[in-house]
Nucleic acid binder design. Structure first.
Lengths: 213, 213
DNA sequence: ATTATATTGATAGTTTATTATCGATAATCA
DNA sequence: TGATTATCGATAATAAACTATCAATATAAT
């Protein structure tokens, strides 16, 4: 019974926010920081921040706070962002290009080594310094590389088939931007980005504001 | 005391998933559907689905299920997706283009009537049939239009200033793709899309899988 | 030296969300 | 007709997340 301790998902989701802020502080030469300060920055409660940070294993000192560089290191270690993770991106459309163009992910250790598409116009090009290959070549090109993550930015109709190819290549995680619920083996993790869910929350809150007038 | 009843955010976030599926069923001519069927489709529990659907005010009939078209209509009404919502998008970079290019949002009543940028290369062009104007013109162009939503896909450094302009135009909601926590009046709602949060969850789950081996 | 203060970490309490249970209903089948 | 079954809605139980509280600690101020 290897009871793996699990951490609150909302806490994990907040870590990147703190990390960004902490790195900024680090850049300014700040050596120490308190939960109160971080909480103020993001309009949260200090207890919440303290609890979130505690999942990384770091402890602070009363009346002093935390060491900024210790926190940065601990968060990156906790998320596995301290080392680089190779990824394939499939679907070099506008969303795929946007992800390729976002430098922020490089900070998270994400290294997208190749993109794939079926569009002859795109194959052979490079998008934001990333080469685009024919989707047909995916399995062949991936099989000798240690590709850990597959990023799915294809049309829904292709999602399941591409997921299968990525799994064949040996990815351990899929970052799924399609609304398709994928059938995948239990040892592969899948994280879905649901933009519609976010828009639904915005919409419902707008609607609610309406009613309050 | 107008105690506005509020609904579980996770339920609201799941509604678009159901909606998509229900529309698909509708397309196949299915008139009725049960929670059990929906739950199976998404690997959830039927009680969960039933509770989620109940927030729209629709009720089903025992042994029968729900009327598909009634559900579709009710979800769209609940989210305000039955009528069109005009929006400005600011920041016509790759992420902005991706959003302009995603047809799905039109289904949600989102009508992006104009995009804005500061890049002379982009100003005057159209991206996915949407005209791109100079950011300087935003307030002037928006002030006589009923723009309800502003979509922020600008670099972090510009986020707060652009948000201010959007509020001046009279938007009631901001869909914020930047990692910046915006200072906005309390009557404007802001929904943040945190791609790093999603990646953090994926990363931590990969890390966890590692440890289990 | 004593007091006041900012901060942490732990514990307890509260709220929110998920999951389980069960009686009622309406269809189908024997 | 009566038994069986799938389903709903309501209620209860559990789990997860958030918030409040407080003793302990270390600094600064008196």
């Amino acid at each position: 019974m290897s009871s793996v301790k699990s951490f609150p998902i909302p806490s994990i989701q907040r870590l990147p926010v703190y990390l960004r802020f902490l790195k900024e502080q680090q850049g300014r030469g700040e050596a120490l920081i308190s939960c109160t300060r971080i909480a103020d920055e993001f309009g949260q409660l200090s207890v919440q921040v303290r609890k979130d940070l505690s999942i990384t294993g770091i402890s602070g000192r009363p009346k002093i706070g935390y060491r900024v560089d210790e926190l940065v290191e601990a968060i990156e270690l906790f998320l596995g962002w301290d080392s680089s993770t190779a990824a394939f991106l499939v679907g070099a459309g506008s969303l795929g290009s946007a992800i390729l163009g976002y430098d922020g992910f490089a900070d998270h250790g994400l290294r997208i080594v190749a993109a794939f598409d079926t569009d002859p116009q795109k194959i052979g090009q490079t998008i934001h310094r990333c080469p685009v290959f024919d989707l047909k070549e995916l399995v062949e090109r991936g099989k000798d590389l240690p590709i850990e993550i597959g990023i799915l930015t294809v049309p829904s109709s292709a999602a399941q088939e591409v997921a299968r190819m990525l799994i064949q290549v040996g990815v351990r995680g899929i970052w799924n931007y399609t609304p398709v619920r994928l059938e995948i083996p239990s040892d592969v993790v899948c994280e879905e980005v649901k933009l519609s869910a976010s828009f639904a929350v915005l919409s419902s809150r707008l609607k609610k504001n309406d009613l309050q007038l």
